[in-house]
Design a protein around this nucleic acid. Sequence first.
DNA 1: ACAGGTTTTCAACTATCGGTAGATAACTAC
DNA 2: GTAGTTATCTACCGATAGTTGAAAACCTGT
Lengths: 227, 227
Amino acid sequence: MGVTGDRFRHEALGVVFQVREDRLSVLLWQRAFPPFADAWALPGGRLLSAERLGTSASRHLAAKVDIPEIAHLEQLETRSDPVRDPRERVLATAYLALVTVGAQPRLPADTAWHPVDALPACAFDHQSIIGSARERLRAKLSYTNIGFALAPETFTIAQLRDLYAAALGHEVSATNLQRILTRREVIEPTSGLSRPTSAGGRPAALYRFVSCSLVVTNPFAAFRPRE
Amino acid sequence: MGVTGDRFRHEALGVVFQVREDRLSVLLWQRAFPPFADAWALPGGRLLSAERLGTSASRHLAAKVDIPEIAHLEQLETRSDPVRDPRERVLATAYLALVTVGAQPRLPADTAWHPVDALPACAFDHQSIIGSARERLRAKLSYTNIGFALAPETFTIAQLRDLYAAALGHEVSATNLQRILTRREVIEPTSGLSRPTSAGGRPAALYRFVSCSLVVTNPFAAFRPRE
DNA sequence: ACAGGTTTTCAACTATCGGTAGATAACTAC
DNA sequence: GTAGTTATCTACCGATAGTTGAAAACCTGT
């Protein structure tokens, strides 16, 4: 009671995912100075005095990395290991950020995309944070409409299949994907058709996501009676 | 670069749930002084300089409320609204804590259990945090074995049904519950039988949870091929 | 001991979900 | 046309989970 409590630095980190060339990739920048010189780190930075964590994450991403295309941002978890930063104690709240496939944001010279299954040496606890973010993304792909934040405005089922396969890390059946997402009313057909490729083949119908804000579509309905 | 960053107070809060008299209840203490005098608040307190958030939550719960019976503790989310505390800015990381049914921890005079569907006026953003915690608990009950942290060592299916019904907020069929949790290998029968009640009736088999650490038992398997 | 009441347990029925396979449709190139 | 290619659809089927009702195992009162 009345004791002066300790105060802590706090940072917001962004795990920015984008599917690039059929591989789930994360945005990292390469540190020039110790600690962890030459290692790769998640974008982020200090929380300011009047700022919420979510806006801080947005600000650091938008300013340092020029990404206005972030289609989804959600809080992941807060890391509090006292020695996660060897210089001084810094709490870090990680956010999951998703960028639409095909977007090509300009990047600073020290910044690059890395496929998540071929990560370089990472600074601090960032590799483990990326692991948590992957888990979250995989889970939400299967019970929410979060795919809207990875997919373009309109897309064919084949494109969506490749996107889900990259993000989930295993093969996905186009037939199944189309039926399930349509039944859940996550996606709907538009009137458009895709240009057939030069190799021929039937033109594909173009779909879109029904909603562009997060909706839980497959509630774990266990133990609930059918009224 | 090199700018002196701001530092913040940080607190850990515990949303402690227990099923009491067939109602999901949360532990709250009544504030004596402003701000929010007389309103009810979640237990918790300051993060210390060498402490992780999880241990801070445990410490505050164990010290202030005498609960060594916390069977499960997990991080929920971090609240960062700059004015969530009118005195000064305090970041708060909330934890979900579960107490076994039947445990009767000694409580300080200002502390009491409140059914979550009849909450009193709450201080700060605590009511909304309790809402988040309920959501998390409900979701995890349906796809993990988290019930182990609410149930006693051994129990009958009827007891477990009442427990799930209280935590989920809707009726639950004992038949269904028994079949599903057994098939998922979440619970298993012991050799014991319950004493029949004075009213008569067949004695019930006693079950136990197979594991007392969190296991995901119903992965959202959507889109995964059957190898 | 037996009837009637109570609680538990189990088996059968059913709907839905989602993975699979194969047929059919719609296009290109030759 | 014919062959090749891609997309789409239907039918099948197993697993999951909600529902129902019967049978089992206990009590009490007569």
